[in-house]
């Protein structure tokens, strides 16, 4: 079955009610835009490819004559619309995942009330159901976006589609690179283990190889791997934070890279501080605390987690002692 049909089937499937509330890639319409791209059709007609019988000759001539690097007719609506859709999808996905995870990890009085409510209503199952829908929602839209950009590049013999993909990454709306997707995966696996939920068809993991990974299965048996090792200490992430650029680090490692104390947190990092991996600036302020992933790792690597907890606490005490000693000396004036 062609992806277009699969996507339409998905849009009008059992989740139609859920999908009415949120935006999605206008796959069919964007494909029509590409089909009716007159500029390309005219340039294709002007190709003297009919004069040659040789297949290779044809292909070469076509390649030489039909390289319209950009197409104003398409570009005007194509990329602006895709960008708008991508940011809307990313925004909706993030807010919904945040909501689900907040309900799942809430502590204190709020957590107590929620657990009390669970005695009367089965909204745990509803949470998992919504999680599953969100995973399908984000993967289907991400695939649709990739397919349409690939199609654009093919039609125009250009690399604008690829450039647009890079732009999406730099603007942090690349759907499959979202840290919230990793969080959702961790939530899914935590829930399955704790509450004996449905078998997990989306996510699997391997934490004991040299490169600990979480694997996400996409449609058509495509695998997407998320590396769960910290690029600074080279170990499995502990108390993980995802910077705005999407790179994952232990809290203590990220703090040391940003030259702030652990107890101050990443919010205290200066806007000039850069990500150690991609060197993007200003990525620490809105870093995402991956609580669900931390819970997931805590359950599966108990000894390692305890060991790291002790080490981080010791480091934190040492740092705060040094910090307050300095403050005291400064106040006293010696």
């Amino acid at each position: 079955m062609k992806f277009g049909e699969t996507f339409m089937e998905y849009l009008h499937g059992e989740q139609e009610g859920f999908l009415d509330k949120c935006s999605h890639v206008e796959y069919k319409r964007l494909k029509k835009v590409l089909k009716s791209c007159r500029v390309c059709r005219e340039s294709r007609d002007s190709c003297p490819s009919n004069e040659h019988d040789d297949d290779n000759g044809n292909a070469q001539l076509h390649h030489e004559f039909c390289q319209c690097e950009a197409c104003p007719l398409c570009d005007q609506m194509f990329f602006s619309e895709l960008m708008k859709e991508a940011s809307e999808i990313a925004g909706f996905f993030t807010s919904r995942v945040r909501h689900i995870l907040h309900l799942h990890i809430s502590t204190g009085m709020q957590g107590y009330l929620l657990r009390f409510r669970h005695c009367f209503t089965n909204d745990q199952q509803a949470m998992v159901q919504e999680g599953r829908m969100l995973i399908e929602y984000v993967t289907m839209n991400a695939i649709a976006m990739r397919k349409i950009l690939k199609k654009y590049d093919k039609v125009h013999s250009s690399v604008n589609g690829r450039k647009f993909k890079s732009k999406m990454q730099s603007e942090r709306i690349e759907l499959l690179q979202s840290p919230w997707l990793i969080e959702l995966g961790a939530f899914y696996m935590n829930f399955n283990e704790r509450d004996g939920g449905e078998s997990n068809k989306f996510f699997s993991y391997d934490l004991h190889s040299t490169q600990p990974v979480m694997t996400m299965m996409l449609p058509d048996s495509v695998k997407l791997e998320y590396n769960l090792s910290c690029a600074i200490c080279l170990e499995l992430v502990f108390n993980p934070y995802a910077l705005c650029c999407g790179h994952l680090f232990c809290k203590s490692c990220a703090c040391s890279a940003a030259s702030v104390m652990i107890f101050q947190g990443l919010k205290a990092a200066s806007p000039e501080s850069k990500c150690p991996v991609c060197r993007a600036a200003g990525v620490y302020g809105d870093a995402v605390h991956m609580l669900e992933l931390d819970l997931f790792l805590k359950k599966r690597c108990k000894e390692y987690w305890k060991e790291r907890l002790v080490a981080e606490r010791a480091e934190m005490v040492k740092q705060s002692k040094e910090y307050w000693d300095l403050q005291t000396k400064f106040m006293i004036g010696y």
């Binding site: 200490c233 203590s252 480091e315």
Partner: peptide, 17 residues
């Protein structure tokens, strides 16, 4: 210390690959 731990990791990596 974190530095020594990291250096041990580096050593392991360097000899493994």
């Amino acid at each position: 210390t974190p530095a020594k731990k990291r250096l041990m990791r580096d050593f392991k990596r360097l000899h493994h690959d």
